[in-house]
Nucleic acid binder design. Structure first.
Lengths: 152, 152
DNA sequence: TCTCTTATTGCGACTAGTTCGCAACAATAC
DNA sequence: GTATTGTTGCGAACTAGTCGCAATAAGAGA
């Protein structure tokens, strides 16, 4: 289920740089923080809290959330709500929007630019600045909703 | 089935028709169902579970959810997840998408047609059929995220 | 290196939103 | 009316996430 082909761009924050950021922010580099940071850094794409909890059984779930929100406040990761399920976290620098199938849960990443025209219209005509990335778009994938207009 | 995409509320289901549908579906018209159906029919737009619970204190919340999902399965209402908060329910036939401010929770309704270009692209290029309406788009309204840059 | 301060953790309780099991109830068919 | 069985109310459970607090352990300074 690992996400494919999210190559690291040069503008992306490196692991050591991330550690520095945490230190500059005045925080301590604890065992939990270091191992979660490593995991998030190495993960190719989005990771859910469940997955992190499974991979770090020594880290309490309350701590998990606290660490994640700390990382987020320092600008190392961001999170996206994937429909009904748990949120997904990933290293910053990705400029894509998740489109999740509401039936099978499959997530397809779409370049954020695809939403630009809509975002512009929403801002200009409705005064709403679209939060690209914070919530996934829900859809149905081909497997779950084969085309050719057969309504349920 | 009556689902041609550009049609609007001319084909909206009336209250008595809705009652018929429930009967045809083999269900009983209970007190809870009748009063909730009336409420939803009369409500101008989206109603949250909280609001319904407040207005129908005699109806247990578990029943509330069951009735709502029954109505939905019969095709009388649909629901939309408004970001972090509770879901909103409304009479079918509305062709709009909710855009919710993630800070203040304000909901702005946007004609579904605004999403058409995006939906088309997602279908054609990514094989995902956007579920317009099931999830709100999240954004920030002008009050919560005043535009600092000087854009036209 | 040891000591001290205090940021962070683990634990358990708690929240919101929603679902489930089950016995009591009430809508309808007869 | 009575019987049948779909629905309801109640409470418990569940998921995703948050919070308070005492114990722990980073890491600055001696």
């Amino acid at each position: 289920m690992t996400k494919t082909s999210s190559e690291r761009s040069s503008s992306e924050i490196g692991f050591d740089e991330a550690l520095d950021r945490l230190r500059v922010a005045g925080g301590r580099i604890t065992r939990a923080r270091r191992s979660l940071l490593e995991d998030l850094y190495r993960a190719a794409g989005r990771v859910t809290v469940d997955e992190l909890a499974e991979r770090h059984p020594d880290v309490d779930s309350a701590t998990l959330y606290r660490v994640l929100s700390h990382f987020e406040s320092v600008g190392l990761i961001d999170h996206v709500h994937l429909g009904h399920g748990p949120a997904g976290y990933r290293w910053v620098g990705h400029r894509s929007v998740a489109v999740v199938c509401e039936d099978c849960g499959r997530v397809v990443d779409v370049p954020a630019d695809e939403l630009r025209p809509l975002a512009d219209r929403l801002r200009r005509h409705y005064g709403m600045r679209l939060s690209i990335g914070h919530f996934a778009l829900t859809a149905r994938c081909e497997a779950c909703a084969p085309d050719h207009s057969h309504e349920r």
